[in-house]
């Protein structure tokens, strides 16, 4: 069965870029513009993977991640942060909060593929 990847980013352009990449990796991409929207999606159907921006209106990436991990079945998705933040201490916070991997923007297809491999998604 095709795996799904939920792409959470407030930038439409970013979502499109990520969408093209995950589709090339044979994932079905779904988009959400903030953490709230993403959480609503997850409550209906848990994705296999989440590519998660950090700074977003409404509910940011960190708040979404903490909420997701409390949901029934919310420990299952592989969550990969994909954010502009590159300070080691901040990145460690994201990992400690339960993210499986972390991508520093800017990224390319190679990096996403490498991180998907790293986390066993492909």
């Amino acid at each position: 069965m095709t795996k799904t990847c939920l792409i959470v980013d407030d930038s439409r352009v970013m979502r499109k870029v990520a969408m093209r990449i995950v589709e090339q990796l044979d994932f079905e991409g779904v988009e959400a513009a903030d953490g709230m929207e993403a959480l609503t999606y997850c409550r209906a159907a848990m994705p296999d993977a989440v590519l998660l921006d950090w700074t977003m209106p409404m509910m940011d990436g960190m708040a979404f991640l903490q909420a997701l991990r409390q949901e029934p079945g919310g420990k299952a998705p592989i969550v990969i942060f994909c954010a502009a933040e590159t300070e080691p201490a901040k990145i460690r916070q994201a990992i400690d909060a339960g993210a499986d991997e972390y991508i520093m923007k800017p990224f390319d297809g190679d990096i996403i593929a490498a991180k998907f491999e790293e986390t066993g998604l492909i």
Binding site: T86, E87, P88, I91, R92, I95, E101, Y102, I103, M104, P106, F107, D108, D110, I111, A114, K115, E118
Partner: peptide, 19 residues
């Protein structure tokens, strides 16, 4: 930034490299 993100898991990056 690109070299470290190809093949180096984030934990190994944080544990073994400084920015």
């Amino acid at each position: 930034h690109f070299e470290v993100q190809r093949g180096l898991p984030i934990r190994r990056l944080l544990d073994n490299f400084e920015k």
